[in-house]
Design a protein around this nucleic acid. Structure first.
Lengths: 240, 240
DNA sequence: GTCGTACAAATGGTCTTACCAATATACCAA
DNA sequence: TTGGTATATTGGTAAGACCATTTGTACGAC
């Protein structure tokens, strides 16, 4: 008796769902990002708008998307609330935990950078290089706005994290960066004003970039560690 | 100043959903029963068929209904637990992300164990030893309940994490454990049933304990890495 | 120049209609 | 009884139109 498996019946909406889920997981769709309009997206995917809507409705009911009438459809922040949110309140009441967060970031960043050196694709490297150039442009521009420099800094590190191809790592690091951004911006200000520190950090970033581009995972990890250790040290000094 | 609550924006499909959910829960719709055809039902409810379909699709995605092309739509016999956590849902439909979480756990666990070896106080060590003894008791008892063993395992690792005296690290690790618990419990079952794997894991736990108790941070980190690498390897083998 | 208003464009929400594909049922023939 | 066929029913997909809301912008008043 030959066994026949059930005929694979694939609903288009199911295909769309899994496709969007994958894009969210691998980072093509970042939290907070806006999706194309239903009409445009339906055309891109070569499906009808009702089918697309069925997929979007299900994803919304799962908590992955959120639609606003007249506004658009947005990707929800999935892992932030789950993993990192408790830390928000903790840091509010106990500022000294910032260094714990930084130590945590050091561990994550080290392994992310290491894996990025091992796994980065060509397009990953191009994106990283682009972020690096943007960061350098900010340095060169003599920018005085701490927020802009901090933003470029974050984007550089996140590009590396994404090249690690570990979705859990990327999501947690993204949450961590959000956490740090709102909490240490005022501290950064004093640090960044020092020309000397500026040069050090710039050199460390270059070192990280070189290691990742060359695929040298050990050097990447070590460079990342040196960078974060320096950041923690500098911040400790300035907080006294 | 009069307070105006937000205008209640009710999607038609949402109303239909809650209505059908209510009918199922209160018993008007019994498991296995067939719903009227989409056309008939749409007319009964005075809504369009697309709106009704959106509702039916969501109810199907929640596991309450099941539609068969050409057949009809039926109420499911068994109503499984509804996944509320978006991330958990994502990992269910994309199991390969479990390994990303495990890889992340490895990185965190390594640094946590290392710091625990460096910073653990006397009371920390006592608590770790206690958790370790409890875990061993579960092993000795020939316990067949995977949940209990998994619980003891988690408590042991968390006790070590707490000894790192990094609250951020502990919070994130706790979140990861929650994530893993709901996702890999059924996988663990097959793994834990092997006596051989059992012995290996037990030896690795002992190794970790020894390193932390002796304050040997390098050995602690390496032992932790070996443990997690083994867990990932074993789980990969069993998933094929 | 700045602020506020009004208009226009874009977007999600809903409905109508139509057609396709799979299934179930009734009926018929061997 | 068995097997096949025709037909009606049902879910799946598509296209188009219209409404409600939001957003952005340009214009005008101050």
């Amino acid at each position: 008796m030959v066994e026949f498996s059930a005929v694979k019946v694939t609903r288009v909406s199911d295909s769309i769902i899994s496709q969007i889920e994958t894009m969210i997981l691998e980072g093509s769709l970042k939290p907070g990002e806006q999706l194309p309009s239903e009409r445009a997206l339906a055309e891109q995917l070569s499906v009808s708008r009702p089918s697309l809507r069925e997929a979007l409705m299900i994803l919304e009911s799962k908590g992955l998307l959120q639609s606003k009438r007249g506004g658009g459809t947005f990707v929800c922040d999935i892992i932030g609330p789950t993993i990192v949110e408790p830390l928000v309140y903790l840091m509010k009441s106990h500022p000294e935990t910032i260094f714990d967060v930084l130590e945590l970031r050091q561990a994550l960043e080290a392994v992310a950078t290491q894996h990025a050196a091992e796994r980065a694709t060509k397009s990953d490297r191009e994106r990283i290089k682009q972020r690096f150039d943007e960061l350098m442009a900010v340095y060169e521009g003599g920018n005085k706005d701490v927020a802009i420099e901090s933003e470029a800094d974050t984007e550089f590190h996140l590009a590396i994290a994404e090249a690690s191809h570990n979705v859990a790592l990327v999501h947690v690091m993204r949450g961590l960066f959000n956490l740090l951004r709102v909490n240490i911006l005022h501290n950064l200000k004093s640090i960044k004003e020092e020309g000397e520190s500026h040069d050090f950090i710039r050199a460390q970033h270059t070192e990280i970039l070189t290691a990742v581009m060359n695929g040298d995972s050990e050097m990447a990890r070590d460079a990342s560690n040196r960078h974060l250790i320096y950041v923690q040290k500098t911040m400790r000094e300035h907080l006294q």
